[in-house]
């Protein structure tokens, strides 16, 4: 909070010019972190009035001149990432959206130039930024074909004080990126009027006819978005057990072979539309109604459940019968096991 360290004007007398330098090395003030503040171009007018009694006892008044100050434009902008965390992606993926919010924290309407840098340190790959898109319809999410592609110098976003705009950066992920790799890019918004060291001023360039002066942000801001490759892989294993008609495990006609097909998803992320298909081996016949998924029976028909038995075609050309099971989305670290039985002819 504000502390009462007072200045003092020494030796002011009408008719003399006195120095107004005030000494103190201890003066310190809290910075006011107000948004935008008084709009650039506003006038601060100060007038005082006085009343007194003259020597005749009559009430008198006096009004001062009005001192006017025009408020100049402060050039300040912030950019923040609007993604809740890493943007998960896949190798060679295109149009991967990184989302940012650009906010005018100055006190005048201002246009900003946008720029993306992808060659940043501390990551494993550089995404290729293919376009910057402005959230033209203001719904906060990227709408392909609806939101306007940013063209520098042509549709630079103009923001009112405290105004903000969503900006999307679309990238292509290199095909060489591996599971767990991160790639960063940064979006920079720079005030078109001026940037530079705080205090740098552009005479007459401020909104409302005053000067424009670079604020504490330097008149520009940037933020980083991070892509994270989550490349899931899948592996299949197949095993079998045999039960012969005599209670043993010999491969003889009439023996029943139980096949177990296991799909394991590794890496990170989730695989979608995973399906298992396995041909019935030559010399065997599918045992009707023996398909299971995770131990639960599946019907052979083409119906609502995940499994189907496709009957063999004698041909020509001959096509063996097969079982097909739709596993849908499988997250990394999970497995799915399908079993079915065949009888040796």
């Amino acid at each position: 909070m504000f502390e009462l360290h007072f200045w003092a004007i020494k030796n002011v007398r009408l008719g003399t010019i006195a120095p107004l330098l005030v000494a103190t090395a201890t003066v310190s003030f809290a910075t006011d972190a107000k948004a935008a503040g008084t709009t650039a171009g506003s006038t601060i007018s100060n007038t005082a009035t006085a009343s007194y009694t003259d020597s005749g006892g009559a009430p008198r008044t006096a009004t001062s001149n009005t001192s006017n100050l025009r408020v100049d434009e402060l050039l300040d902008v912030t950019v923040v990432s609007a993604d809740p965390g890493d943007i998960t992606t896949l190798p060679a993926a295109t149009n991967q959206v990184a989302t940012f919010t650009v906010t005018n924290t100055g006190n005048g309407s201002e246009a900003y130039a946008l720029n993306v840098v992808t060659a940043l340190g501390g990551d494993q790959f550089d995404p290729t930024a293919t376009s910057i898109v402005l959230d033209t319809n203001g719904n906060g999410v990227y709408d392909a074909g609806v939101d306007a592609v940013y063209v520098a110098g042509s549709n630079d976003p103009v923001l009112a004080p405290d105004g903000s705009v969503r900006v999307f950066v679309l990238s292509t992920i290199p095909g060489s990126a591996a599971d767990g790799d991160r790639g960063q890019l940064s979006l920079t918004a720079a005030s078109k009027t001026a940037t530079g060291a705080p205090g740098t001023s552009a005479a007459g360039q401020g909104q409302g006819g005053g000067d424009a002066v670079v604020g504490t942000t330097g008149g520009d801001g940037s933020a980083t978005g991070t892509y994270l490759v989550q490349a899931a892989g899948i592996s299949f294993t197949k095993s079998s057990t045999v039960v012969d008609p005599f209670g043993g495990a010999k491969i003889v006609p009439g023996a029943i072979i139980t096949y177990t097909l296991t799909a394991s998803v590794n890496g990170t992320g989730t695989l979608t539309n995973v399906a298992i298909s396995d041909n019935i081996p030559t010399g065997t016949t599918y045992e009707v109604g023996t398909m299971t998924l995770q131990g639960a029976p599946l019907s052979d028909g083409a119906d609502a459940d995940a499994g189907i038995f496709v009957a063999p075609v004698t041909g020509p050309p001959a096509v063996p019968g097969r079982v097909e099971v739709q596993l849908g989305s499988v997250a990394s670290g999970q497995t799915r096991a399908v079993t079915f039985k065949v009888k040796i002819n």
Partner: peptide, 19 residues
Amino acid sequence: SRTVLEEPKIVTPGDRLVF
């Protein structure tokens, strides 16, 4: 550091004024 009073040239939000 020391505090100085200037004639107003550039005035922006957050500036301290002495009337």
